[in-house]
Design a binder for these strands. Structure first.
Length: 272
DNA sequence: CGATAGACCTGTTTGC
DNA sequence: TGCAAACAGGTCTATC
């Protein structure tokens, strides 16, 4: 489900409700959701009676920083939802729940792929997937120069921009949208992009992600923000989910194919 | 190094 | 209509 814009929307919504609040208790309904520590009782005991200092995002990870130098690192994968409420709510796929001063934080996850990991700040530097994250695409670090440094080999440009060690937070929906906006064929070997195309791609990534955040994310089926609401960005997608429909630039039929195992929609005429 | 398939799960859509 | 296959926002592992 969530890519950078969705996770960003969730974190923005959680901040005012979680920061400075005490965690009274934790309940875990699916043990496999908790990836660290292995012992659930240990997990619960370490969190109880701590205060949340800050809620931030890194790539698609949510980082809840506690006052005992521990971090709750949460990844929603495909169907995870993190919803805050000051009322009791019913969820069909509730995997964990945090009882706070003033309300409840629910972790609901249909497919059980989502993970919650409790790590000491020193362990973050070793955590697989997390410590190798590339730059934030909406930061100044993400530039033409940065991408040129990272480019090597002949893999398709779509695989390259989905690589989390290159760009933190880009996922399948927005990768397709960015390549369409930049008029670049997703199958192009990444080392064949010229300077102009790299500039177009960098600009397209910033544009697409910024707009998606303004629209509070894309809701196809499962994504919800921290209040349980839907996003609006699905109304503005130009290629994702539009396989076999007409290209909004040239009117011809869009093409759908698998690249790197992921469904990819693009225009054979507009994207060179 | 990279590409690919399988694994992890459940729910919904598609196709015969 | 009915049921099985295919597919879904993600990422890790094994294998060639």
């Amino acid at each position: 489900m969530p890519e950078l814009p969705e996770v960003e929307t969730i974190v923005t919504g959680l901040k005012p409700n979680l920061e400075g609040k005490l965690i009274h208790d934790v309940q875990v309904f699916n043990k496999r959701t908790i990836t660290n520590p292995k012992d659930i009782e240990d997990f619960i005991a370490t969190i109880k009676r701590t205060t949340i200092n800050e809620v931030t995002r890194k790539g698609k990870y949510i980082d809840i920083i506690l006052d005992n130098k521990m971090h709750l690192i949460i990844h929603l994968r495909m169907t995870g939802q993190l919803i805050y409420s000051n009322k009791e709510m019913d969820f069909t796929h509730l995997r964990a729940m945090f009882k706070l001063d003033n309300g409840l934080l629910y972790f609901n996850d249909i497919r059980k792929f989502g993970t919650i990991s409790l790590l000491h700040q020193d362990e973050l530097l070793l955590e697989k997937g997390y410590h190798t994250l590339g730059v934030e695409p909406l930061s100044n670090e993400f530039s033409d120069c940065y991408l040129k440094e990272k480019i090597k080999g002949t893999r398709p440009v779509k695989n390259f921009i989905l690589d989390q060690t290159v760009i933190a937070g880009l996922g399948n929906i927005y990768a397709d949208e960015c390549l369409f906006l930049a008029n670049i064929n997703p199958k192009r070997p990444v080392n064949t992009l010229d300077d102009m195309e790299i500039t177009l791609l960098v600009d397209a990534i910033k544009e697409v992600l910024s707009k998606a955040i303004e629209n509070r994310g894309t809701t196809f089926s499962d994504y919800k923000d921290s209040y349980g609401g839907k996003g609006e960005n699905q109304n503005f997608l130009k290629v994702y989910g539009r396989g076999k429909e007409d290209c909004l630039k040239c009117g011809k039929k869009l093409f759908s194919d698998k690249i790197g195992g992921r469904t990819t929609v693009f225009c054979l005429d507009c994207q060179k």
